[in-house]
Write a protein that binds this DNA or RNA. Structure first.
Lengths: 350, 350
DNA sequence: GGTGTTTTGAGGTACGCAACTCATTTTGAG
DNA sequence: CTCAAAATGAGTTGCGTACCTCAAAACACC
C-alpha cells in the first residue's frame, strides 16, 4: 500500500483565471504577457504578481498552436568531412519525426567556419529569417560581431561545440575543454602507473581554441600530479592522418622511453599506424577524443586506452531544445543541457 | 557565404489535407487515426497509405490541447532514505515548471519496493487512475503480475533503475549492471597497475539483482584480464555504513596485500572509515558507485579513485519523456533515453 | 426489392492562447 | 473644466486536433 503521496505540478489555471483574479481583462493580461505597450506600470505589476502568486504557466500546446507560423532554426556547420559534425547532423536527422510533430523546421547550413569573414557573412545572411541559430563558431572579432547582430535582431543564438564567450550568445552547448584536457591527463597519468618515461601530445593546431585549452588542462595535471612523467613539446598534425603519422614516427625514433600519448584532435588513424609501425601499440598508454567507428575499434583492440567524449547526439538535441526553450521563453533545464565529459573505455562503450 | 543548405522536417499538412487527398471526410480520417470501429478495411488502408506517403505527423500541440484532460503519471519509489532516489525526486521537482507548462501531473508514491506483495498492492491501487507509471521494481512474480495488469489496463509502464525483464513493461530506464560491473573491474585492474595483490568486493546483498549483476561483470573482467589479481569472497554490508566498516576492518586485518576494492552498493562512509582506520586510504584503489555529496568529497580527496555513475537527473527526465511519448504514441528517441554508464573521476566531476 | 446494418459525410463544439479591432473609460495637461 | 492621449475592456477569429451527433449513403442478406 502507498504510504505517502506527493504531487509535482498540479494546478491548471488559464489566462482567464489570471485576468479575473487580477481584476483586469484578458486583453490586458495578454499585453503584459507579451510586453506590449499601453499598460500602466501599476497594472503591469498587479498582473505579474498574480501570475507569480499562482505560479501560472501558459499552456505551451495552446501557445504553440495559436502562434500559427512554424519556427525555423538554422545550424551553421563546417563544410568539411568532419566525422564528429557528421554525427551531429545524423542525430538531427533522427529527430525529424520529433521536429515535424512540433512543426519545427531545422536547416543545415554548411560553411567554412574556419574563415572568420566567410562565417561572419554566413551569419549575416541569416538575419531575420530564423527564430534561432546554432553555430559552430570560431572565436574571432568578426564572428563575435555577427553573433551579436543576430542577437540584437531578436534571433536566439547558441554556440555549438566551440564557444565565443565574449559574444552575447544565449547559450553554449559543448564541453569545458580545459576540464577535458585535465581528465585526459589524469587518465594517462593513472594508467601509466608506476612506470616512468615521457608523455607525448599531438594536436591539430595550437591555434584552435579548443585544442589549446585541452593542452593547457592536460599539462596542468601532468605538472602538478605526475611530475615524474616528462611532457614532450606539442606536435601538430593538422588533424590529418598522414601528417600525424609522420610526426609521431619521427618522435618514436628519437625517444625510446615514451609511456603515454595524448591525441588532442583528429588524425587518429595516423596515430594508430605510427604506434603499430613502431611496435609500441600495447606499451604506450594512448588517450584520445571522441567515439567514432575507428576509436571504437581501437578501444576494443586495446590500442587505445580511453577516449574523452562529448556525446554528439546530446549536443544536437540540446541545441534544438535550448533554442526552442529560448524562443518560447521557457526556463532551460540547465542540468539536462549541460554536456558532460565522458570517459569511454572498452567496457562502457556506448 | 552558405555553400549548401539542407532542411530537416518541412511540410506542415493537416488532417484536412489528408482527408482531401484520400478522398474521404475528416471524420473517417479521425476514425482511422484512433482505431475507432466502423471503417471498411479497404478505406482504412487507403487512409493509412495517404498518411504514410505524406509522412504526416499530427501536430502534437493541437492534439494535446484538444484532448482536454491533463495526463497523470505516477512514480513508485522506495520509501527509505536512499540518497540516489532522493536525487531522482529532486530532479523531478526541478522539472515542475516544465511539467506544468505541459499540464502534466506527476505524483510520487513512496512504498516498500523490497516487499513484493506490498509493491504489487501499490501497483494494483494505481489501476485506471494514471496514464503512465514509473516504478523502481523488484524482480518478483507478483510484481511482474502487477505490472502486466497495469499494461493490460492500458497504462504505460516503465521500470526505473531496476528492471523486471520478464514483465511486459514498455521500457526500462536504467543501466546495464553487468556492463557497469565490467567497467568497475577494468578500472580497478588498470588503476592498480603493475602491483600484485588481492581485490575485495563489498556488496549490499548478493540477493539484489543489480548487485549480483555488477559482481558478475566485475568478476568476469578480473578473471579474464587481470588474472594476477586474486578476488576475495564477496562481503555483504547491507548497504549500511556501520556494518560495512566492520566487515572491511576484519578483512583488512586478515589480508595485508589488498590493492583494490570495489564497493557495489551504498555504505560508502563505512568503507572510507575502514580504509582510513587501516591507514590504507591512499594505497588501495577504491572504486564505487554514484556521485553523491560523499563520493564527490572522497574523489576530491583521492580516497576514492573512480565512481561508476548513472545520472539520476537523466533517469528522472527520461522516465517522464518516455511515458509521455508512449502516451502520445510518438516514437521514442532511444539514443536519448538510454542511460549511460558514466566513469567519474576527480577531473570530470559533474 | 425491402430490410436492417454498416459505413461514411457533414458539421459542430471545445481546448487555451495569440493577435487583432474597436469602443469605452481613465488620466493628465492646459 | 475641456480635450487629447493613454489605458483598458469586450469581443472576434483562427490555430489543428479530439470527440461527438445525426443524417445520408452504401452495403449485405433474405
Amino acid at each position: 500500500m502507498a504510504e505517502d503521496t506527493d504531487t509535482i505540478a498540479g494546478a491548471a489555471l488559464t489566462l482567464k483565471d489570471i485576468a479575473r483574479q487580477a481584476g483586469v481583462s484578458l486583453a490586458t493580461v495578454d499585453r503584459v504577457l507579451h510586453n506590449r505597450p499601453g499598460v500602466r506600470p501599476d497594472t503591469v505589476r498587479r498582473v505579474k504578481e498574480t501570475i507569480a502568486r499562482n505560479a501560472f504557466q501558459p499552456h505551451v500546446a495552446a501557445a504553440e498552436l495559436a502562434r500559427g507560423r512554424p519556427r525555423r532554426f538554422a545550424f551553421v556547420m563546417p563544410s568539411g568531412p568532419n566525422p564528429f559534425m557528421q554525427q551531429i547532423e545524423a542525430y538531427l536527422g533522427e529527430m525529424s519525426a520529433w521536429l515535424a510533430a512540433r512543426r519545427l523546421a531545422v536547416e543545415l547550413i554548411a560553411t567554412d567556419v574556419f574563415d572568420a569573414s566567410v562565417l561572419a557573412a554566413s551569419l549575416e545572411a541569416l538575419a531575420g529569417d530564423y527564430d534561432g541559430v546554432a553555430v559552430v563558431a570560431l572565436d574571432h572579432p568578426r564572428v563575435r560581431a555577427g553573433i551579436n547582430d543576430l542577437v540584437d535582431a531578436g534571433t536566439r543564438v547558441v554556440t555549438l561545440v566551440s564557444d565565443v564567450p565574449s559574444s552575447r550568445r544565449h547559450h553554449y552547448i559543448g564541453i569545458d575543454n580545459i576540464a577535458a584536457g585535465r581528465t585526459a591527463g589524469a587518465l594517462v597519468g593513472r594508467l601509466v602507473g608506476q612506470k616512468s618515461g615521457k608523455v607525448a601530445i599531438l594536436a591539430g593546431s595550437q591555434g584552435l581554441r579548443d585544442h589549446a585549452e585541452r593542452i593547457f588542462g592536460f599539462s596542468q595535471v601532468m605538472a602538478s600530479e605526475f611530475p615524474g612523467l616528462g611532457v614532450l613539446p606539442v606536435l601538430e598534425g593538422r588533424d590529418e592522418d598522414d601528417r600525424s603519422e609522420q610526426v609521431l614516427a619521427r618522435l618514436f625514433d628519437k625517444h625510446a622511453d615514451i609511456v603515454g600519448l595524448y591525441n588532442v584532435g583528429a588524425g587518429t588513424q595516423g596515430v594508430a599506424n605510427a604506434l603499430s609501425e613502431a611496435g609500441r601499440d600495447r606499451q604506450v598508454v594512448f588517450v584520445g577524443h571522441d567515439v567514432t567507428v575507428l576509436t571504437r575499434r581501437l578501444l576494443l583492440q586495446g590500442v587505445m586506452d580511453a577516449a574523452i567524449s562529448q556525446n554528439p547526439g546530446h549536443e544536437a538535441r540540446a541545441a534544438v531544445r535550448v533554442l526552442l526553450a529560448l524562443a518560447r521563453g521557457e526556463p532551460i533545464l540547465s542540468e539536462q543541457e549541460k554536456i558532460r565529459i565522458d570517459i569511454v573505455m572498452r567496457d562502457n562503450l556506448p
